[in-house]
């Protein structure tokens, strides 16, 4: 299976370890990714300013992938939502669709709607499948509590993103469960990291982030696991910036899902770039590695855990 890897703008320059760890994990599981040089920004950053300007780039990106005959795989939630939104607009607004295709024609491109856009989590969960991943596991962790923050734009609006159940998502938890770690039920799990307000209403943005950091810590999280690149940057960079002003708290370290999964698949932590996360200290990596052990069937124990209401 081969997919066009849509990395967006943040990941290649600011979160390279997310791309590398995802790529390595997928390679191990038989999925090949192609980097497409012509992909541009998804359009998301301009959405506050001009809705049409927001849609056009994503249509173009999808048209490029279509031309290559590849489906797109995305990690960043905001890119994912932009691409899915553009697809929905092209299907439901024929007038605008014609107009955008005229713009694309300048580059010899046309959006047909033949390709699909998949989130990295969907590729793991559906295309590869839990059982297939399980077979490849060489390690599992024990006693590891994570606060997953799904991020908003992967889940909502559900009519557009078409990902999981937007009220009670299970894909991420099931993937985490494979590794033996516990995805905690905590109050920020389905909420906003504040990134959308960063730089234009930074105070509010940081208040929202602090609320999530506190929530995750209160729930007993050892690590926070963001899905979206914007959430990642909030926890991994803004958190440290905030801490320069108030040093009364320990930093809540970030561990990405493909980094955890990669460890359990026997991939070296250096390759997974765990220490490239700014919030990670060498001690964290040592602690993580100490939790690794041979895979054991722990499913029953997890099933006993009472399912709390999400959100």
């Amino acid at each position: 299976m081969k997919l066009a890897f849509f990395q967006g703008c943040n990941i290649p320059i600011r979160i390279e370890q997310y791309a590398v760890s995802a790529e390595t994990v997928l390679k191990k599981l038989g999925v090949e990714l192609e980097i497409v040089e012509e992909f541009t920004c998804c359009g998301y950053p301009v959405r506050n300013v001009d809705e049409k300007a927001y849609i056009i780039p994503s249509v173009r990106n999808m048209a490029i992938a279509e031309k290559k005959g590849l489906d797109i795989m995305v990690i960043c939630n905001c890119c994912f939502a932009s691409l899915q939104k553009a697809r929905s607009v092209m299907a439901n607004n024929p007038e605008l669709a014609v107009e955008i295709n005229e713009i694309l024609a300048k580059d010899g491109l046309k959006f047909e709607g033949t390709g699909t856009v998949k989130h990295f989590l969907t590729v793991l969960h559906e295309d590869i499948g839990l059982e297939a991943i399980k077979k490849q596991l060489v390690n599992m962790v024990s006693e590891l509590n994570l606060s997953v923050i799904h991020g908003c734009h992967i889940l909502r609006p559900r009519e557009v993103t078409l990902f999981d159940d937007s009220f009670v998502p299970r894909i991420t938890d099931e993937l985490i469960a494979l590794t033996g770690a516990t995805s905690l039920d905590w109050r920020g799990k389905l909420e906003c990291c504040g990134a959308a307000l960063g730089g234009l209403n930074s105070e509010l943005s940081q208040t929202l982030l602090q609320e999530k950091i506190d929530g995750a810590r209160d729930a007993g999280a050892q690590f926070v696991t963001p899905v979206c690149s914007y959430c990642h940057l909030q926890f991994d960079t803004t958190q440290l910036n905030m801490r320069e002003q108030r040093q009364d708290q320990d930093v809540l370290p970030v561990l990405l899902l493909p980094q955890l999964l990669g460890l359990c698949l026997g991939i070296d932590e250096k390759v997974l770039g765990i220490e490239q996360n700014s919030t990670i200290e060498p001690l964290h990596v040592d602690n993580l590695k100490a939790l690794l052990g041979p895979p054991v069937e722990k499913k029953k124990k997890r099933k006993k855990r009472p399912q709390k209401e999400a959100a």
Binding site: C9, N10, R14, Y44, P45, V46, R47, N48, V49, A195, A196, G198, G199, L200, S202, S205, Y230, L233, T237, T238, N241
Partner: peptide, 22 residues
Amino acid sequence: ETSMLSHFSFPLSLTRNFIDDH
């Protein structure tokens, strides 16, 4: 500059440069 109200401001907020100018 009205574009400051866009998410282009987000990566700028991460770098901690030009905070006062911003």
